[in-house]
């Protein structure tokens, strides 16, 4: 892991990877969503509205995966003092928040025609909204810490503590009776028909690649800005 401690070595890999991930992810998302929107069958119970699955579920996974990555980067920063960890955490926060917001918005648009409501304070929805607030709080804290030229340690601790919300989201439909249905994809199998599962997995993989491309872009931007700031400090000294 410390092979990438040197930003120059990281950038050498990140530059070509950004384009590959970005175009690959975009193409995969386009194909999978076309499949989900046109070719995939409607649901026996929910009818056409089931097509919202192909954007809602990948967004939910990425919103949660984003915080998992943020927590992992926080751990690397606190324990191993990896120089890129704080940069990675800051690069993940905004895309993670965006996908969490997409999850909540599409979920609301899915809930109205199926459950008959835009929003209910059930365990799953509330814990997902908490995740969005955690992202907002983390972004504000990291920004405030950076302005006081801190090393991001407070944000890293927040990132680790906030990770307890992830199992709460996951188990919210199992621990508490909720309006949201239980999980459809588990370790032992799935309750989703193959004709619907494939566009879902394709879309999830495509959005994940796009997410990775966005994280790399933001890391490169942060590294470049850091370089400019260091140069300005040298000039001022």
């Amino acid at each position: 892991m410390h092979a990438f401690a040197n930003p120059a070595r990281f950038l050498k890999l990140a530059r070509p990877l950004t384009a590959w991930l970005g175009w690959g992810g975009g193409l995969l998302v386009a194909l999978a969503l076309l499949d989900g929107l046109v070719l995939a069958p409607r649901d026996y119970l929910q009818g056409e509205s089931v097509r919202i699955l192909y954007v809602h579920v990948p967004a939910a996974w990425l919103g949660m995966g984003g915080w998992a990555a943020l927590a992992a980067a926080s751990l690397m920063q606190l324990v191993w003092r990896h120089p890129l960890a704080a940069i990675a955490a800051r690069a993940v926060a905004v895309p993670g928040a965006v996908f969490t917001a997409i999850c909540l918005a599409t979920g609301s648009l899915w809930g109205r025609p199926t459950w008959g409501t835009w929003w209910q304070w059930d365990g799953r929805m509330t814990s997902m909204l908490v995740l969005l607030f955690l992202y907002a709080g983390w972004i504000a804290l990291a920004e405030a810490e950076r302005e006081r030229s801190g090393d991001g340690r407070l944000a890293a601790i927040f990132g680790l503590v906030g990770a307890v919300n992830l199992p709460v989201i996951h188990y919210s439909v199992l621990w508490w009776r909720s309006l949201h249905q239980g999980q459809s994809i588990g370790l032992t199998g799935t309750t989703i028909d193959p004709a619907m599962l494939w566009p879902l997995l394709g879309s999830a993989l495509g959005f994940t690649l796009l997410f990775a491309a966005v994280v790399l872009m933001r890391m490169r931007a942060l590294l470049a800005r850091q370089k400019v700031e260091a140069r300005l400090r040298r000039l001022a000294a």
């Binding site: 954007v55 918005a105 648009l109 899915w110 025609p113």
Partner: peptide, 8 residues
Amino acid sequence: FIAGAYAV
């Protein structure tokens, strides 16, 4: 609703 979700 589907169009709205995909557009968002």
